[in-house]
Nucleic acid binder design. Structure first.
Lengths: 106, 106
DNA sequence: CGCAACATCTCCGGATTCAAGGTATAGGGC
DNA sequence: GCCCTATACCTTGAATCCGGAGATGTTGCG
């Protein structure tokens, strides 16, 4: 997992509604066809700092399978952050693409 | 600059032939339309560890404008590494793309 | 000469990722 | 009831690495 992308991925996952930590990791795995594996040692610290920064809010709840879970939801600041991170990613990926294509041409 | 991409960018830059540190940074800036700025505090340590790992070889020389420069060149291991990093990047960017599109659909 | 631009280098703080280990609970099989 | 697995949350510590800042030296120009 490239450093700096975990938060983008979490924000993106929460776009579709509240989810708990494990659920976020599983959704990412499935959606990316097992390409993106979010380790717990990255996931939980990331959730905590994002909540500290006001991008997320959490609340204890019960999951479908009757487990105690901590549900995370995007705040408005989180939604704004999602947008800027998405744009940042697009710009960065485009820049890398430019460089890779330029080097191919050589 | 996303962590983990500096080495890919350096390897890519050197694909077109030997270059010195400053030259690498300038080529990246120009080619990416100033989107990718490689700071000196990242550049030189990266060059050193890549040489230590056998991906690069260096040699002192004189530049066009008559400056003493350290020219870096890809080794065969470096070329192999460039290929695997390029593939890794493509796979990763594709995975992120999948996730972003999936979340948009929600 | 003085100064800007070029060129290399190192130190250090801050951030972050992952492996590893810990805790707890639900549900199935025996 | 008891064990085991899967689910779910968390923390710690090591390793990595990026970027800001500062140091050094050189070339060429006004």
């Amino acid at each position: 997992m490239l450093r700096g992308t975990v938060e983008l991925l979490i924000l993106t996952t929460l776009r579709g509604g509240p989810r708990h930590g494990f659920g976020i990791a599983r959704w990412l795995e499935q959606t990316s066809d097992d390409e993106l594996q979010l380790e717990e040692g990255s996931l939980y610290p990331a959730l905590h700092r994002m909540e500290r920064r006001g991008w997320l809010e959490s609340e204890w709840g019960i999951s479908d399978n009757n487990r105690k879970v901590k549900l995370y939801r995007l705040t408005s600041r989180g939604r704004a952050r999602l947008q800027s991170e998405t744009e940042g990613w697009a710009a960065f990926a485009a820049a890398i693409g430019k460089v890779l294509r330029a080097a191919e041409a050589v």
